[in-house]
Computed example of a mutant assay.
Amino acid sequence: MAGGHPRPAAGGGRAVTNDRKTQLAENLARVEECISAACARAGRPRDEVTLIVVTKTYPASDVRLLAELGVRQVAENRDQEAAPKAAECADLPLTWHFVGQLQTNKVRSVAGYAGIVQSVDRVRLVTALSKEAVRAGRELGCLIQVALDAEAGERGERGGVAPDGVGALAEAIAGAEGLRLDGVMTVAPLVGPYAGRELAAFERLMEISSDLRAGHPAATMVSAGMSADLEEAVAAGATHVRVGTAVLGVRPRLR
C-alpha cells in the first residue's frame, strides 16, 4: 500500500522534499480510505478512530512533513531514536506515543517528551514513570499493554501483562501521582490461541477494555491494529490504530 523512500530528484533538496511530501500525502489518503471503509462496514462514525503514525526509523524531516499534512499523533518504540527526534520537532503540535518495551533506565528520557506510554506492563515501570512524571511536572497518559499470548502470570513474547493481571496494574496506575490511566493496548499475537486470528484477538481486547472501564470509566482508549490488520481492529472497536509502513513505506533494516 506504500512505497519506500523517493529517489533524489533533479533540482536539489526542495524537489526531494516536495516529492516526499507528495508520497506521504498519497499514502495517508490511502490509509484514510481504508479506515473510513472499515468504519463504514462496522457501522461506526469515522471520528471514533484516531490514526497514530509510527515514525520509527524515519527522520525528523518526515515527521515535519506529516505534521504539515495534518498528522497530530506519532509513535516511536526506541528512546535512543525518539528522544532526539522529538527534540528536533518540539515546535510542532504533536502528541508522542511510546509504544516499545520500556526499560526503567529509559523512563526519565521518555517522560520528557511522550504524552502517552502505550506499553505499561509491570508495577515497577509504573513506579518509575510516576517518579519521573512528577519530577518533570508532567502528566503521562498510560495504556496497559495486554499480552494475549501469555499464560496466566507470564509475560508475552512481545511484552505485556497477562489478561488476569490487568486489574491490579490498572489500580497501580490510577493511584500513581503524575500518571493517567487511559486504556489498553495490544499487538496481534504471533503464537498462542489468537495467532492468525486478529479479529478474535482484538475482540478479546475489547472485552478486557469493557471490564477495565467498569472500574475506571475514563480509560476508554483501545489501541490495536497496525498496517496489516487495522481493518480487523476497527471492526472490533479499536479507538486508535498504529500505522507505520502503509504511511511511510517499507522500513530500512536496522543495522
Rank of each mutant, 00 (worst) to 15 (best):
G4C: 03
G4P: 00
R7H: 13
R7L: 14
A9M: 09
G12M: 02
G13T: 15
G13V: 15
R14H: 08
N18Y: 03
N18L: 14
L24Y: 01
A25M: 00
E26K: 03
E26S: 08
N27L: 04
N27Y: 01
E33H: 07
A40F: 05
R41K: 15
R41P: 07
A42S: 11
G43F: 10
R46Y: 05
V49P: 06
V49T: 12
L51S: 11
L51H: 07
I52P: 10
K56D: 08
Y58G: 06
A60L: 11
D62V: 06
R64T: 08
A67D: 00
A67C: 07
E68T: 02
E68C: 02
L69M: 01
G70F: 01
Q73H: 15
V74C: 07
V74M: 03
N77C: 12
N77L: 04
D79S: 12
D79F: 12
K85F: 09
K85W: 09
A86G: 05
A86E: 04
C89I: 05
A90E: 13
L92G: 04
P93I: 06
L94D: 06
L94V: 03
H97V: 07
V99S: 04
V99W: 05
R108Y: 06
R108S: 12
R108Q: 12
Y113F: 15
A114F: 02
G115T: 10
G115D: 10
V120L: 02
D121M: 09
R122F: 08
V123M: 09
L129D: 02
L129I: 03
L129K: 00
S130C: 05
K131L: 13
R138H: 00
L143A: 04
Q145L: 09
A147K: 07
A150L: 08
A150V: 09
A150I: 10
E151F: 09
E157A: 14
E157T: 15
D164N: 10
G165F: 00
E171F: 02
A176C: 03
E177A: 15
V187F: 09
P189L: 08
G192P: 03
A200C: 01
E203W: 00
R204C: 06
E207P: 02
E207G: 07
I208H: 01
L212C: 08
L212V: 10
H216P: 03
P217L: 03
P217K: 04
A219L: 02
V222L: 01
S223W: 00
L230I: 06
E232R: 13
V234N: 01
A236F: 01
A238E: 04
A238T: 10
H240L: 13
H240V: 11
V241F: 10
R242V: 10
V243I: 15
G244Q: 07
A246G: 03
A246D: 11
G249D: 05
R251M: 06
L254E: 14
